[in-house]
Amino acid sequence: SIEEEIKKAEEAKEKGKTFIHGDFVATTEELLDELLKRLRKKL
């Protein structure tokens, strides 16, 4: 679910890890923020 993806992305951000969502690879905090923004729009 979208909620689960958001939670996983937030955890990755806290730990400074890379998060992959489909073909979107978030390797930096900026990219994770962008991904979180996109996911929240889908809610």
Rank of each mutant, 00 (worst) to 15 (best):
G16P: 00
K13V: 04
E14T: 12
F19N: 04
I2N: 02
K42T: 10
L32M: 04
T18V: 13
T18Q: 12
F24L: 07
K15E: 06
L32C: 02
H21S: 13
K7I: 07
E14G: 10
L39V: 00
R38P: 00
T18G: 11
E34K: 09
E10H: 06
L39W: 06
E29C: 15
K42W: 15
R40F: 09
G16M: 03
H21R: 05
K17T: 13
I6Y: 02
F24V: 04
S1A: 10
T27W: 14
K42I: 14
E3A: 11
A26R: 02
A9S: 02
K13E: 02
K7Y: 06
F24R: 00
I6S: 04
G22W: 14
F19C: 14
E11H: 06
G16V: 03
L43V: 02
I2F: 05
G16D: 04
E5N: 08
L32I: 13
R38N: 05
K37T: 11
L32H: 01
T28N: 09
K15H: 12
G22C: 15
K41E: 10
K42N: 03
I2M: 05
D23K: 08
E29H: 10
G22E: 09
K13Y: 08
T28M: 12
A9C: 15
K41S: 09
I6D: 02
E4Y: 08
E5Q: 14
L43Q: 05
T28V: 10
E11T: 08
K37W: 05
K15R: 10
T27A: 11
I2Q: 04
G16R: 05
K8W: 07
K42S: 09
D33Q: 07
R38F: 15
E3G: 06
E10M: 13
E30R: 10
L35I: 10
E5I: 15
K17I: 14
K17L: 15
L31P: 01
A9P: 02
E30T: 09
K42A: 13
E30C: 14
E4N: 07
I20D: 04
A26Q: 03
L31G: 04
E4S: 09
I6R: 03
K15A: 12
T27N: 15
E34Y: 13
I6Q: 04
T27K: 09
K17R: 09
F24K: 00
R38E: 06
T18L: 08
E11L: 09
G16T: 04
S1V: 07
E29A: 14
R40N: 00
L32S: 00
L31V: 03
F19A: 04
L32P: 00
K13M: 07
K37A: 13
K37L: 14
E5M: 15
L36Q: 00
A9G: 03
T28K: 01
G16N: 08
H21D: 03
E14I: 13
F24C: 13
R40S: 01
L39N: 00
I20E: 06
G16L: 11
E30N: 05
L36G: 00
L35N: 00
K42L: 15
E30Y: 10
L39T: 00
E29R: 14
I6N: 02
T18P: 12
I2W: 08
A12H: 04
K13G: 03
L43E: 00
L35H: 01
A9E: 01
V25W: 13
L39F: 05
E3I: 12
I20S: 06
K8G: 06
G22D: 07
A9H: 01
A12G: 01
E3Q: 11
E14Y: 12
E10Y: 07
F24S: 02
I2E: 01
A12K: 01
E4P: 04
V25M: 10
G22K: 05
E30F: 09
L36R: 01
I20Q: 11
L32A: 01
V25E: 08
E3V: 11
L31D: 14
H21N: 04
E4T: 06
E10A: 05
I20W: 09
H21T: 07
F24M: 06
G22S: 05
R40C: 12
T28Y: 07
F24D: 02
E11Q: 08
G16H: 11
D33S: 08
D23Q: 09
D23V: 13
E5P: 03
G16Y: 09
K15V: 03
K15Q: 13
L35Y: 05
K37G: 05
L43G: 01
G16E: 06
E5H: 09
L31Y: 03
K42F: 13
E10F: 08
D33Y: 12
E29I: 15
H21P: 04
L43Y: 07
E34A: 10
T28P: 01
V25G: 03
K42E: 11
E30W: 13
A12L: 03
V25S: 06
V25A: 09
L43W: 08
R40Q: 01
E14Q: 13
D33H: 08
T18M: 12
E11F: 06
T28C: 15
K13C: 15
F24Q: 03
L31R: 01
K13I: 05
S1Y: 12
I2Y: 07
L43K: 05
L36M: 03
T27M: 10
R38Y: 15
R40E: 00
R38H: 14
A26L: 08
D23C: 15
G22I: 13
I20T: 11
E10S: 05
E10L: 14
E30M: 08
D33N: 12
E10W: 08
L36T: 00
K37P: 00
K41M: 12
S1R: 11
A26N: 02
E29L: 14
R40M: 05
A12C: 15
E3F: 11
E34N: 05
I20K: 07
A9Q: 02
K42D: 06
D23I: 14
K8F: 04
E5L: 15
K15S: 10
I20N: 04
E5W: 15
A9D: 02
L43M: 05
H21C: 15
E29D: 10
D33R: 13
R40G: 00
E3N: 06
F24A: 01
E3K: 10
E30G: 06
F24P: 01
E10C: 13
V25K: 06
